[in-house]
Design a protein around this nucleic acid. Structure first.
Lengths: 215, 215
DNA sequence: CGTTCAGTTGAGTTGCTTCAACCCGTGTGG
DNA sequence: CCACACGGGTTGAAGCAACTCAACTGAACG
C-alpha cells in the first residue's frame, strides 16, 4: 500500500508492474476515461476523495481505462488481493464499499440513458446536476454554487458532445438565468429546479439513487 | 432463495416487497433497462444464464432499473444480505462474482464510449460483436453464426439509435456481405474481421476485457 | 381474406458537428 | 513596458448524420 502525491494532469499507469493495483483517492479529483484510436475520449466517471477505483479488466491483468489527475491529488495504490482480504475481514468496510459501488453503477447507468437518448440540453443539465449533487454531498453543504475543477474539454469529454455545442448550450442556460459561469469553470446554479426539470430528473430521487447514503 | 420460471416479456418487479432482492439467472436472457418519462428506453445490459444482477440503488431500498425477460427464463431471487454472507464465506464464489462484476463494468464502459463518440455504423457493429463474443463464450463455440433473442426494438434500445436508422445500417452491412440477417434476428457474421474493424476494436483485446475468463 | 405488427424503404427536416474566425487573459522575450 | 504568440473559450455559417413522418411489405393469425 503506497500513498503518492500526483500533480494535476498526471496520467496514472495501470499496466505492467502496476497491474493488479487498485486506487484509493485520499485527496483531489481523478477522471476515468477510455479513448478511441482517433483520439476521441469519453470520461466514464470522476473519482472523488474517499472513493476507490479498480481499473482491472476481465482478464485480471491489463487495464481497460486511463486515469488522470484533474487536480493535484493524493492517491493510495493497493494490491487487489490485499484489498479483497480486507473487504472479507472487515464487515463495515465491505458494506461501505459495496454501497459506493452501487452508487457508481447507478450513476453510470443514469449517464448511459442520457447519452443514448437525450438532447444536448438535457445532457448538459444532467451533468451539472450530477456534479452538484456529488460535490454538495462530500464538501460544500451549499447546494447551489460550486467550483468544478474541469476545463471545458473535460466537461465535453464527460458529456459526449462537441465542445462547440456544449459551449453554446451552457451559454443558453446562462442567458436563461439558470446558471452563471465564472472564470475557469466556476459554476453557480441559480435555479436548481429548472435545471432538474431540463435534465428530466427528480432531485430527491436522483440523490437517493446516486449518492451513497450513510444509512 | 426462490427460483421461479418467468415467461418471455415479463417485467420483474424490484421494488416494495421484493426490495433487497438480487437476481440470479439460471436460464434465459434478461434485459436491464432504464427509461425516461417520455417512454424512451435505454437497455443498460443483458443478463445471461449464470450471471447475477443487483438492481438496488444507493439508498439500499429502491431499484433504479427495470428488468425484463427477453425469453422464457428461470430466475432465482436472493436476499442481498444472505448473498453477501455467502460471498464472504466462499472464496471461490467471491472470486467468480468479482470477475463477472469487472467484466460487466468493462462492457458498460466500452459501450459508453461508443454511445458518446461513435457513428451509427460503429455502434451497430460494436453491439453485434459484443453479443457474438458473449454468446460464443457461454454457448456456441462457433463464433460466426448465432441467434439473438431480441426483436429489433430491443436491439435499438440497446444501441441507442432510432429503429429506422438501425435497420438501415444493418441492411447496409448485409449488402456489404459482412452479415446476414435471417428471420427474427438470426444473425450470421460472415466477416468478423471487417466488423471488428468497423467497430474499431481488436477482437482479442476486447474478449480479454469483456469476457470473464476462468483464469 | 382481412387485420395486425415487425421490419423496411423513401423523403424531408433538424440538431449536432465541423470549419473558421475571433476574443481575451496569460506568459514571454525583446 | 509593449509586442507577440498561445491556448481556452465563444460565436457564426455551412454541412451532414441521424431523426421523424409516412407509406409499403410480408409474415403470422384469426
Amino acid at each position: 500500500m503506497i500513498g503518492a502525491r500526483v500533480a494535476k494532469g498526471t496520467r496514472l499507469r495501470c499496466e505492467g508492474d502496476e497491474s493488479n493495483a487498485l486506487f484509493y483517492v485520499a485527496d483531489g479529483w481523478l477522471a476515468v476515461s477510455k479513448s478511441l484510436e482517433d483520439g476521441e475520449r469519453q470520461i466514464l466517471d470522476f473519482i472523488l476523495p474517499g472513493e476507490t477505483y479498480d481499473p482491472t479488466a476481465a482478464d485480471g491483468r491489463t487495464s481497460f481505462v486511463e486515469i488522470e489527475a484533474l487536480s493535484d491529488a493524493v492517491v493510495v495504490t493497493t494490491d487487489r488481493a490485499v484489498w479483497a482480504r480486507l473487504l472479507r475481514h472487515y464487515r463495515d468496510l465491505w458494506d461501505a464499499e459495496s454501497l459506493r459501488d452501487i452508487a457508481a453503477h447507478a450513476r453510470q447507468s443514469e449517464r448511459m440513458l442520457r447519452l443514448g437518448k437525450c438532447s444536448a440540453e438535457t445532457r448538459v443539465a444532467y451533468a451539472l446536476i450530477e456534479l452538484c449533487l456529488r460535490l454538495s454531498a462530500c464538501a460544500t453543504p451549499n447546494a447551489s454554487a460550486f467550483h468544478v475543477p474541469l476545463g471545458q474539454q473535460q466537461l465535453v469529454d464527460f458529456i459526449g458532445l462537441s465542445s462547440v455545442h456544449v459551449c453554446r448550450t451552457l451559454r443558453r442556460l446562462a442567458r436563461q438565468g439558470i446558471i452563471t459561469t465564472g472564470d475557469h469553470m466556476n459554476i453557480t446554479i441559480h435555479d436548481v429546479a429548472a435545471l432538474a426539470d431540463l435534465a428530466g430528473v427528480d432531485l430527491a430521487v436522483l440523490r437517493a439513487e446516486i449518492i451513497p447514503s450513510v444509512a
